[in-house]
Every structure is written in C-alpha cells, then in structure tokens.
Design a protein around this nucleic acid. Sequence first.
DNA 1: ATAATATATGAATATATGAACATATGAAAT
DNA 2: ATTTCATATGTTCATATATTCATATATTAT
Lengths: 102, 102
Amino acid sequence: MDNRGCIPNDKIISLLADAFKIFGDSTRIKILYSIYDSELCVYDIANSINMTQSAVSHQLSILKNARLVKSRKEGKTVFYSLDDSHIKSILNVGLNHIEEKE
Amino acid sequence: MDNRGCIPNDKIISLLADAFKIFGDSTRIKILYSIYDSELCVYDIANSINMTQSAVSHQLSILKNARLVKSRKEGKTVFYSLDDSHIKSILNVGLNHIEEKE
DNA sequence: ATAATATATGAATATATGAACATATGAAAT
DNA sequence: ATTTCATATGTTCATATATTCATATATTAT
C-alpha cells in the first residue's frame, strides 16, 4: 500500500497517467455512469447523455481500448457495460475526493 | 457507495473529470510521488524527476490550485507536500487498476 | 438485391495542454 | 543598495484531444 519513498519507474508512471487521462473527460465519465448498473446500446447511451451517436462511439472506442468497458453484439446492436467492478471504485474514490474538497 | 442508476449532475461530472485530469499527466504524477513521504522544495522536486525548475513550478501551481498539494514557505524556499492522505488512495487505486490490467 | 437500421471510422476543425524560454518577483546576504 | 538565490509567471510553440460531418461497415428485413 505504501511506496516507501521511491518514485515508480517511467513505464508505471506513464501507465498511471494514461489511466487517469481516460477518466479526465466529462463525456467519458457520463458514459461510464450511464452503464454503471446495466449495459446499454450505443443509441441509448447517446440519448441518456445527450450526445451524438458519433461522438459517443468515438469515446466508447477509447474506453474499450483502455479496457474500461466491454461490448457484446446482438444482431446489429452493440451493448456496452463496465469491464469490471474496479471501474466503480475508481469513480467512487474520485467522488469522495471532490466531496472532501467540498 | 452506489449511485442507483442515475448519472451525477453536470457540475459533479465536470468536477470529477477535472480531478482525474490533474492526475492524467506523467510530470504531475512524478511530482506527487516525489513528495509522497515527505515535503520537498521546488529545486529538489525538479532534480528528483529531472525536469526544469520552470516546468515543475508550473505544474506545482496546477496541483496547488487543485488542492492536491500544499506549500510552506521558509525564507526563500518553498516546501511542497501532499495536501492530504486522500491523494495517496487515489494513486493507489490507480496502481491497482493498471496492475489488474497486467 | 435493395433498403433500413445500428454502429464505426476517417478527415477536418477547434480547442486545450505541456514544455521551453525569458523574465519577474521575493527574500536573504553582503 | 545590489547581488544572489529560489521560485513564479507570461508568452510562444508544438502537440494532443474532442467534436462534427460525411461516409463506411455490418446486420436484418423486404
């Protein structure tokens, strides 16, 4: 849990920064919350966060690439869901943080 | 702990994204780790992460503005330290995340 | 085969961001 | 007062990023 006064190596640092970078965008956060409890298709995600299908699709591909979401195809519809429960804890830690800073 | 299927309002979303954005940069992550255990002055931070004083100072002001670090002045020297222990848990959750993704 | 629907992708544009450089500020020492 | 040292700040530049628009792909229905 503790790092004992050493800075993680560059590869780890850069992976860490990249991971946080993914969460550092409102649209992506909204998408993650829209599928927080259950999977949704692209169209429904776009609707629930009031963004165009294209914009959402672009962001979904970034989220999928970073393995924050996974997808399941059913006919012509693609359903997205959180990749694992871990994502929720990151979002929650973030929420705690901003609440603490009132 | 759970959000019960609703997306936080726009203000919260944007605060969340902004918070993660701060963590989404290698230089800032390095700075945070360099003062993980104890305070350091700007010069020492710059040295420990191999960046110019100017670049570090700029990033420190961003970190301070976001209240991730606090500063203490002693003569002409300014010592920076993590603003609260909460920052560490965010870094740790991030580390767990990237380890999980192997 | 063609049309309709759902999603993905590529190019273009606008904006944001980090780093470098030069310079400014503030504090201590001479 | 002036020099020196530590830090901060303004500007510029290059790069990264998100969104839009147009189009492509894939799947189903007719």
